[in-house]
Amino acid sequence: MTRAAPAAAPVLARRRLTRTLGFVLLLVLVLVAVGASLFLGSRSIDLAAVVDALAGRGGDAVEQMVVLDLRVPRTVIGLVAGAALGLAGALMQGLTRNPLADPGLLGVNAGASLAVVVAISAFGVTAPSGYIWFAFAGAAIAAVLVYLVASGRNGPTPLSLTLAGAAVTAILTSLITLVLLRDLDTLGQYRFWSVGSLVARDVGTAGTLAPFLAVGAVVALLLGRSLNGLALGDDVARGLGQRVGLTRVLAGAAIIVLCGGATALAGPLVFVGLVVPHVARRFVGADYRWILLYSLPLGAILLVLADTVGRLIAAPSELEAGIVVAIIGAPVLIVLVRRNRAVIR
């Protein structure tokens, strides 16, 4: 602040105000999305009944069950997983300095998927709530492996992280396919998990993972300034007095926790982490402190909305959230990319 020229100060203050207001607006939109997710569905339940069910006042037993046991859990999981994935995506793009990076690139999705395949195939786990720890552990192991391989002797560079992540992902995906080609029953179950969906997930697991996710989110949000330094290149960041290695380790750990947790909750949802930071950049430019902050609500909105839309367009059946995210997110990304040159560089 002190270094800014006098004339620039009001501009900066105004920009900060705009950005804060924008963030508040996003929070309002999160509430709108939550409302839509609770009130809309293949079974039409009127507003009063939903409010009654939420407040614990009697009413129709079936409607109460639909709201409390179906809609509330998937809304909560959508909020948590969406916010975590959005944040992890922003971190990943800052860490690798690559606007094409997706948190799955660190091997998280493939690691979680392989662990779930093993859980189904070798241990006979059938309930999605049983996958959670397998998925979380698989994600963490894969990501640590990628990180160590990419580090070599001199620590990871954006390029080596990207290549190592893609390589490990390819190996793990091959192993998954190898199992699936020989085991029909596992394929039968795995394909529903792998498409990414908020249905039939256990809301209790969201509570179990919440502390991890919260710590990951706090660490991530504190890294904004360091990521701004990294964006200028390692040498400049060091010249600015930053500890580049420490930033990378912290960012990597936060990505593992956030993305691993989200994948354990909702399956491998790839697109959220990629598209959300681009939307955030559209509003706040290249400042990672704001990109990270905006990515939280944006991710939550995208996933909750995708889940709601999936329920409505295919009623009485439904379309998995992972599929709808791509249907909504892809055009959004295309429009953003076409509109704005600054998005990319």
């Binding site: 697109f271 990629l274 598209v275 791509a326 997110g329 055009p331 990304l333 990319v337």
Partner: peptide
Amino acid sequence: LIGIALAF
């Protein structure tokens, strides 16, 4: 980026 969007 547009390619990635279509890929998804």
